[in-house]
């Protein structure tokens, strides 16, 4: 447990020291929110949730990429892959919740005709999905730049694609629009149920995928035989 906590602590410290990145990540959802605040509050709420997802994925991507050089040697220094992965993910999830809290309060104060419980659910699922999503990207792409571009593409698609089309469901933050529709337009519970299912499946799948990729990357190679 000490190992997981130590990794989590150092992950948070690292992210907090990237001042510029931190400011952008903190402000971006706000910019999204304000962009449609005047004419369409519902759209504003959808955008802020997507903004949160993008911000946390980016933080996770940067964190995962930065750890590439360090993790193999930590693996040799007594850490299991699980310690490293759990610590990093826990830190990112915590960060995501902290990041979401002020935006939830904002919506709570600013918009009174929406289902606040559902908004909280979107944010929870967004945090749950975004952190492993960024970590998966950090393993799959060689550098932060490529990862950032990919994230932009995903969020861009998410905003433009018709949510009713089946292809849109392949995007990791599709649930966000579904539940938001329920929360803002007070539609039937089907939206909520579909969104909840999609979000949960995405969160689980990405968490498992990120874990698997980490285990492969940090695996013990069979040619190395410890002798006792």
């Amino acid at each position: 447990m000490i190992k997981v906590l130590t990794v989590a602590e150092m992950t948070v410290r690292e992210i907090l020291r990237r001042r510029a990145v931190l400011v952008i990540i903190l402000m971006l959802p706000l910019a999204f929110y304000l962009s449609r605040r005047g004419d369409h509050l519902g759209q504003s709420i959808r955008f802020v949730c997507l903004g949160l997802g993008w911000a946390l994925s980016t933080a996770a991507l940067f964190s995962g990429s930065a750890a590439r050089g360090l993790e193999p040697r930590l693996r040799l220094s007594g850490y299991g892959t699980g310690h490293l992965y759990a610590g990093r993910l826990a830190a990112l999830w915590t960060l995501g919740l902290v990041l979401s809290a002020p935006y939830f309060l904002l919506i709570r104060v600013d918009a009174d005709r929406v289902e606040h419980g559902a908004i909280a659910l979107i944010m929870l699922l967004t945090v749950a999905v975004a952190a492993p999503f960024g970590l998966v990207l950090s393993v799959l792409v060689p550098r932060e730049l490529e990862g950032t571009l990919l994230l932009l593409t995903v969020v861009g698609l998410q905003m433009m694609m018709d949510p009713a089309g089946s292809a849109a469901r392949l995007l990791p933050f599709w649930f966000s629009r579904e539940i938001a529709t329920y929360a803002v337009d007070h539609t039937d519970g089907g939206y909520l149920a579909r969104g909840l299912t999609h979000g949960t499946v995405c969160a689980l799948a990405l968490t498992v995928l990120a874990m698997t990729l980490a285990s492969i990357r940090l695996r013990r190679r069979p040619h190395l035989r410890p002798v006792t």
Binding site: I2, R13, E14, R18, A67, L74, S77, Y79
Partner: peptide
């Protein structure tokens, strides 16, 4: 790790 100070590196490896 670029963003950690030396003591934090020691603590990190030490915990392992």
């Amino acid at each position: 790790s670029d963003f950690l100070v030396p003591d934090e590196h020691f603590a990190l490896v030490g915990a392992g």
